[in-house]
Design a protein around this nucleic acid. Structure first.
Length: 933
RNA sequence: AGGCACGUAGCUCAGUGGGAGAGCGCUUCCUUGACACGGAAGAGGUCGGCGGUUCAAUCCCGCCCGUGCCUACCA
């Protein structure tokens, strides 16, 4: 098989993904080796692949592939969650297009409809993940609404109930009037908006001419006001405490109460209290025994019930408000207050408004019976698990956010008034509680707060109080995050004690973004400890968010979204994955610009071409490692061979260290650097001399070194760029012949995926070779530099004259063919003493002086300028070093090694200055003599 | 309001208590038998500002300015 001149990803990726899948390479091996397991953060079943998923899964896949190659028994569980509200919204929108609503369909038919949608369209994102190359075990794919996982949800719910950690209560909760459901506190996103602060006068009942002025951002809620609070120490209002006010419009008499919660300096210092529609007011109301008047229905429209109940009949003013949306009602109220002269003023005011995280509708605090988890008893052990290191969070800084949140955690509202999800396993006796049923909309109902739930794994047979046998299931479903919290063990079979569960729980690591630290990570830890009595994962690696190149969060509305699928199509999945990993520095967001991807596409191509070079120079039948071992024994390796193997050994160590500590960017960087700037730039160039017979060397040995290093590069890079490495490896393997079969008849030898990951080879480390080649490279660069400065065409060969110490010169002489080839020198002279050439371009490397007698090509003025610049640089450096060395305290207190280095530096710079001065002197002589150099 | 990050080359970002780095971009030169998705060389930085600790600070500490994020009940 021949490789084409440029790498073409489009022909390669699908082929190898299928190959891996067909081989069963994604499944855990049968070995008894150590286990490594991960669960995927389940993407939303309605979702499609975005940059966040791409990053998240690239990192996970890199880890999995690395661990698998490194001999672990790897399980990576894929799947999706049912995304209750989001999915229900999607299907409701589809129904709406046909003019249908879910209440028209009824609960059962609607849920069937959602299942149909899920079967048809719900798996998109998993297919997209395959394009990314993820090596999940698809035979383990799970969905939070699967039978097994649903059983886990019921089991968890019932156990929490039995342990007294669940309760049902009427509380003020966050209500989305569009989704018509309760939300948990963290499902509310706070957004700054430009609003107003209205100042409204509430007259005293006794003296209507006097009154209190309250300040509010939500005048419409005044319909539900049951008090006005002032600070007990506020001298302005002390006399009002205990007096009655007449609430405008409603005419309700409400008391002025004293509470230290009130901030005297804010607004007017008088706070209207609406216990049924504001969280603070609710608490104050509880404290002072105030009535809670609910003025809204489930869609946040003004509803008459409370007013009718209060007045015994519908009050006259109500018709103007009845059925009006909150913001319409606000306008009417403001208008009405203006007319009656009670609106004192209206200021512009910027404040935060809570919105639904699914649909951005402003949240309404709403008084309804809901299910809550008593969270403190669960949070405490979960805090402890992170504090005592049973769970390690990387980067560590996130553990502070975790502690802060967990320590102030509030009970978790887990009931949702939607239909798509796990219906709560609680029933109510129709005989006892049938009268407590409240219709809340077509097909929707709610049970009053004092209804008595019977919780169980199965519907009850008989009511324990009345003996009745007719029951009604609680209509609510559970928060999707409730089932997600069980994911690390429900996917492994819990509550059944399966083999998977025994083997793979706790999972090794969880890789996720910080945005779901509270939604998910914290809750998994709590549930894992509760039900499995062990942490759900040993490590949490938290990665950044992907933003656009301006650092903005990508969003459809901003139009700055980069579609990962398009990127993969255009630049190749490998280039894309490499880019994400290379940018994934810890604790920093990723600003993704397409140029970066192009850069790494070039890297993939560079690797491809390096492979082409190795392959086109490879005689068949070499099994690289084995024969290389022979070469090493035979001491046949020349200096560049030793050097590249030494660098390889170092790189293996660096790469492993980086990935073992989740430093993906360093992992990528080390491999990039070694592949391109050591292997390609230097070793391949040097190897050409052996291959083409310029130097006397065994070309077969050089081929083996080339093949060995290439194979190692492929293995090292495979976790990051799986496709191109497989493509090359397959050709290489075909050329080299079969390697050692790990298992006779096993699949290991038919994919790079299952090759052992390179291990550090201390015996390949050659510090001396590193140093020597380093010196050779420096001299080479110096000569190239001179040539470029002198505008000496690369095609033109030049003579090189070296002055220096005997040892260095002897070494350079021994490597002369390389020097000549790399620096394009026609000849090299080695002199330890004597007259330096006049009018030659000069450079200094350590104690070695380099002269290029370029004759006519040298522009005296330019060369003088250049040398002067070099000289002044060297002088500045020397001055700085001498200042240090002249400082007695530095010499006395700094580490010995540091002082020694500074002294060496001083000598080097002195040498350099001396040489440069001599060169400049010679140039001036030439100039004065008017000689042609 | 509190908390946490961040501010380093034109851009995007690594990094470190003792000689400032990468990728891209830019300039000059080069189609040399792996690669022009390439090669060689180069220019470019008071490491946000001001103080402090230290023999030594881009790095540690404090304050300030700027940016971003998270959390929060100031109507």
């Amino acid at each position: 098989m021949e490789l084409s001149k440029a790498y073409s990803h489009s022909e390669v990726e699908a082929k190898w993904y299928r190959h891996w899948n067909d081989l069963g390479a994604f499944r855990p091996s049968d070995s008894s080796a150590s286990h490594f397991s991960m669960v995927i953060p389940p993407p939303n079943v309605t979702g499609s692949l975005h940059m966040g998923h791409a990053l998240n899964n690239t990192l996970q896949d890199t880890l999995c592939r690395y661990k698998r190659m490194d001999g672990y028994r790897v399980l990576w569980v894929p799947g999706t969650d049912h995304a209750g509200i989001a999915t229900q919204n999607v299907v409701e929108r589809q129904l709406a297009e046909k003019g249908l609503s879910r209440s028209q369909l009824g609960r059962e038919k609607f849920v069937q409809r959602v299942w149909a949608w899920r079967m048809e369209a719900g798996g998109t994102i998993l297919h997209q993940l395959k394009a990314l190359g993820v090596s999940c075990d698809w035979s383990h794919e799970r969905f939070t609404m699967d039978e097994g996982l649903s059983m886990a949800v019921i089991e968890a719910f019932v156990r929490l109930w039995e342990d007294g950690l669940l309760y049902r209560a009427e509380r003020l909760i966050n209500w989305c009037p569009r989704c018509k459901t309760a939300l948990a506190d963290i499902e509310v996103v706070h957004e700054e908006v430009n609003g107003h602060l209205w100042h409204i006068r509430y007259p005293l009942v006794d003296q209507p001419a006097r009154g209190l002025v309250v300040a509010t951002t939500r005048p419409e809620t005044m319909l539900g006001d049951t008090a006005v609070a002032v600070h007990p120490d506020d001298p302005r209002y002390r006399n009002f405490i205990g007096k009655k006010l007449r609430l405008p419009i409603v005419e309700r008499e409400i008391p002025v109460i004293a509470d230290t919660f009130v901030d005297q300096s804010f607004g007017t210092g008088a706070l209207k209290i609406t216990p049924a529609h504001d969280f603070n007011d609710f608490e104050i109301g509880e404290k002072h025994g105030l009535k809670k008047i609910n003025i809204f229905d489930a869609e946040a429209r003004i509803t008459p019930e409370a007013f009718v109940e209060e007045a015994g009949q519908e009050p006259a003013w109500l018709h103007r408000y009845r059925g009006k949306q909150r913001y319409e009602a606000r306008e009417i109220i403001v208008e009405e207050l203006k007319k009656s002269g009670l609106l004192e003023k209206m200021d512009g005011y910027r404040h935060a408004v809570g919105k639904c995280y699914r649909c951005s509708t402003p949240i309404e605090p709403y008084l309804t019976p809901q299910w809550f988890i008593k969270i403190k008893p669960l949070a405490e052990p979960a805090i402890e698990a992170v504090r005592d290191g049973r769970i390690k969070v990387t980067p560590e800084g996130w553990s502070n956010s975790y502690f802060a949140w967990m320590e102030n955690i509030k009970d978790w509202c887990i009931s949702r008034q939607i239909w798509w999800g796990h219906q709560i396993p609680a029933w109510y006796c129709k005989a006892c509680d049938g009268g407590k049923l409240l219709e809340t909309g077509e097909g929707d109902y709610m049970l009053a707060r004092d209804a008595r739930p019977i919780v169980g794994r199965e519907p009850p047979n008989r009511c324990s109080s009345c003996g009745g046998n007719s029951f009604l299931q609680d209509p609510d479903v559970l928060d999707t995050w409730f089932s997600s919290a069980l994911w690390p063990f429900s996917t492994l079979g819990w509550p059944k004690q399966t083999e998977d569960l025994k083997r793979f729980y706790p999972t090794s690591v969880l890789v996720t973004g910080f945005d779901i630290l509270f939604f998910w990570v914290a809750r998994m830890i709590m549930m894992g400890l509760k039900f499995m009595a062990d942490v759900p994962f040993r490590h949490v690696y938290i990665h950044a968010l992907v933003r656009d190149q301006e650092g903005q969060k990508m969003s459809k509305s901003k139009g700055n979204v980069i579609d990962p699928l398009e990127v993969m199509e255009r630049y190749g999945t490998d280039a894309f994955r490499f880019t994400l990993a290379a940018l994934a520095a810890m604790g920093r967001d990723i600003k993704l610009a397409e140029e970066r991807i192009v850069g790494y596409q070039n890297f993939v191509n560079k690797l491809w071409n390096a492979a082409r070079f190795v392959l086109m120079n490879l005689s068949p039948g070499q099994r690289s490692e084995q024969n290389l071992a022979d070469s090493l024994r035979g001491n046949e390796l020349n200096l560049p061979d030793q050097w590249i193997l030494s660098r390889l050994a170092t790189t293996v160590g660096n790469a492993r260290e980086a990935i073992d500590s989740y430093r993906f960017n360093e992992f990528a960087h080390h491999l990039y650097q070694f592949t391109w700037h050591e292997f390609c730039d230097w070793y391949i160039e040097m190897s050409k001399l052996s291959l083409n017979g310029t130097i006397k060397d065994d070309p077969l040995k050089t081929q083996r070194v080339l093949a060995t290093v290439l194979e190692n590069i492929l293995l090292l890079l495979h976790p990051l760029i799986p496709f191109v490495t497989e493509e090359i490896w397959q050709v290489l393997r075909e050329r080299l012949g079969p390697g050692k079969q790990v298992m006779p008849g096993g699949i290991e030898d038919s994919t790079i995926m299952l090759q052992p990951y390179p291990r550090p080879r201390p015996e390949w480390m050659q510090p001396e070779a590193d140093e020597r080649i380093g010196f050779l490279m420096e001299v080479t660069r110096a000569i190239r530099n001179l040539r470029a400065e002198m505008n000496c065409a690369p095609s033109k060969e030049v003579k090189v004259i070296l002055f220096g110490g005997e040892q260095n010169l002897a070494f350079l002489r021994s490597q002369e063919p390389y020097l000549r080839a790399l620096a394009r020198a026609s000849s090299v002279d080695y002199l330890t003493k004597g007259e330096r050439p006049r009018g030659a371009a000069t450079a200094v490397v350590g104690e070695t002086e380099i002269y290029l007698p370029l004759g006519e090509m040298i522009n005296l003025e330019e060369e003088k300028t250049r040398l002067s610049r070099e000289l002044s640089r060297a002088e500045e450096e020397l001055a700085r070093v001498q200042r240090k060395l002249g400082n007695g305290e530095f010499v006395a207190k700094a580490k010995e090694e540091v002082v020694r280095r500074e002294k060496e530096k001083a000598e080097e710079f002195e040498d350099k200055i001396r040489t440069l001065n001599l060169s400049l002197g010679r140039l001036r002589e030439v100039e004065q003599a008017g000689e042609k150099p």
